[in-house]
């Protein structure tokens, strides 16, 4: 299903591109507040209007995209970086103590309501983008560990792995050289989906004030700031909401498209 992939990649690339562009150029400086020009509807100068401090909303969305993308990306990185090795290790000896231990720890993390834990983390260490990353990252670990273990268990019974064992390669080497390369497609697909979930989670956390702190803009906080003004300045609430919606939608479509493209066996009736 190429249409998903093209549409999804297009949407994601648009927001990622806008975020990247904001490092070099934004329509208006968001550091300079212009209180006299606050809450202006979209116009020729300000395409998406201005916010309650008179900042240009388009520029805010471009810069805010950096926060969302960075937080979600690093959180997925943490999840992969820790989850994949754990999953690989667990798969080496099915049912062994390591496998049991890792899977039990996974279940335990899954049992904690993620948003509550994120709130507790920020209560302990204070609200910041870094703590949002940690909070989201922790819950990505079991996802990747479980996925990796499941797929790796299947691979360990395959002939080419048996051959490598016979050739005297150790478990670590086999995991790295034979198992992992066969998981890359799967991980890319799951990574895309976790990435989109990470963006939603970041938006939720900064909406309740636990994500990136001012003056760093973020989509979730833009929504929170706009909330009381939605009835007379809907433009303030619409653009950040749509930015989140479209980015997540783009990533999900891209994930689906990638899955179909990379691994036909995973299509599962997706046509």
């Amino acid at each position: 299903m190429r249409r998903n992939l093209i549409l999804g990649t297009g949407l994601s690339a648009m927001f990622a591109g806008a975020a990247l562009l904001s490092f070099f150029w934004v329509p208006f400086d968001i550091g300079a507040l212009d209180i006299a020009n606050k809450i202006k509807p979209p116009s020729g100068a300000h395409w998406l209007g201005t916010d309650h401090f008179g900042r240009d909303i388009l520029s805010m969305i471009m810069v805010g995209g950096r926060t969302s993308i960075a937080v979600a990306l690093v959180a997925v990185g943490i999840g992969m970086g820790l989850g994949v090795p754990l999953g690989l290790a667990a798969a080496v000896q099915r049912g062994g103590w390591l496998d049991e231990g890792i899977m039990r720890a996974n279940d335990l993390i899954f049992a904690f309501p993620s948003l509550l834990i994120a709130i507790m983390i920020t209560a302990v260490f204070g609200a910041s983008a870094v703590n949002a990353i940690i909070a989201i990252g922790i819950f990505n670990i079991p996802v990747f560990a479980r996925l990796t273990r499941g797929a790796a268990l299947g691979l360990w019974t395959r002939d080419f792995v048996l051959a490598a064992r016979v050739a005297g390669k150790g478990a670590v080497r086999i995991s790295c050289e034979h198992i992992l390369p066969n998981l890359v497609n799967l991980l890319i697909v799951q990574g895309t989906i976790q990435f989109s979930l990470g963006i939603l989670a970041e938006a939720g956390l900064s909406y309740v004030g636990l994500g990136a702190q001012p003056p760093v803009p973020s989509w979730g906080r833009m929504l929170a700031d706009s909330q009381t003004m939605i009835s007379f300045a809907p433009h303030m609430a619409l653009s950040p909401g749509l930015a989140i919606l479209l980015t997540v939608l783009g990533l999900n479509l891209m994930g689906d498209g990638l899955r179909d493209l990379l691994d036909p066996r995973l299509q599962r009736g997706q046509r």
């Binding site: 550091g31 507040l33 209180i35 001012p214």
Partner: peptide, 14 residues
């Protein structure tokens, strides 16, 4: 405090 803080931070920065 929260809103005032953002404004004052910008004014001090200038």
């Amino acid at each position: 405090a929260r809103r005032g803080g953002e404004i004052i931070a910008a004014q001090l920065r200038s």
